[in-house]
């Protein structure tokens, strides 16, 4: 896992050398947190996207929500949410889930502006998501389109943490148990309305605190123990 991080840092430096000036280069110029840092000293950004579908190549990011965790405290002052004015009309089945209509969308900001701000918020932090492929693939694909290059970033995935915990137990579990809201239920966390980027980011952040408390309640484990 440590080698993986060295991979992260090495790759960041390699990408930095090639990156064109602009938001992506700025992002890559900030070192990632050291994997030996205890988690309570690691700056963490919980993040979630709503997307038009599941395929990063053909679908688009609709909205972005994120919130900071510092010393195991979620700071509501850092809560951020932004809708993107994507191209094309929205699919009805999607609208039902994420509740973002064409009207709200049209009031959103351009994708360049949103990603620029997002990269700025992510710089120097470990990125916390639940089920990371979506956020990772969509962000990389969008950056490739915008800057001609995909970034790399250290990821903490609450789904992976929970899976590790459940794997250690003898009892069986269903994949359904690993869904954000079912995991939250199992920790008796309050129910939030699903599928809004910020409230999902907040929901993930709270789940992370609960999982960490269960993992090692006495001392703060290092970042590397939770990196994906």
């Amino acid at each position: 896992m440590l080698s993986q991080w060295f991979g992260y840092e090495a790759k960041r430096k390699r990408l930095l050398a090639k990156a064109p000036p602009g938001p992506l280069r700025d992002f890559l110029s900030v070192p990632f947190p050291d994997p030996k840092t205890p988690l309570n000293k690691t700056p963490i950004l919980a993040m979630d996207f709503e997307t038009t579908g599941l395929n990063a190549k053909t679908d688009q990011i609709l909205s972005v929500g994120h919130i900071c965790i510092d010393s195991f405290e979620i700071l509501l002052s850092s809560a951020y949410h932004q809708v993107i004015c994507t191209q094309g009309e929205l699919k009805e089945e999607g609208v039902i889930i994420h509740q973002i209509t064409d009207d709200t969308k049209s009031q959103g900001q351009k994708v360049e502006a949103v990603i620029e701000k997002l990269l700025y918020a992510m710089a120097g932090k470990a990125i916390l998501v639940h089920f990371s492929p979506i956020e990772k693939n969509f962000l990389q694909h969008t950056c490739k389109q915008l800057y001609g290059m995909a970034p790399i970033f250290p990821i903490i995935d609450t789904l992976m943490i929970a899976r590790k915990r459940l794997d250690q137990r003898t009892s069986l579990y269903s994949p359904n148990d690993l869904r954000l809201f079912n995991l939250r239920d199992s920790h008796k966390l309050p129910r939030y309305k699903a599928h809004n980027a910020l409230s999902d980011a907040l929901a993930t952040a709270e789940l992370f605190l609960a999982e960490i408390e269960y993992k090692q309640p006495k001392k703060s484990p290092p970042l590397k123990s939770v990196l994906s």
């Binding site: 405290e73 700071l75 509501l76 408390e213």
Partner: peptide
Amino acid sequence: IKKINIRYIR
């Protein structure tokens, strides 16, 4: 709300 921090205590 902007001043709230959230914590989880086992």
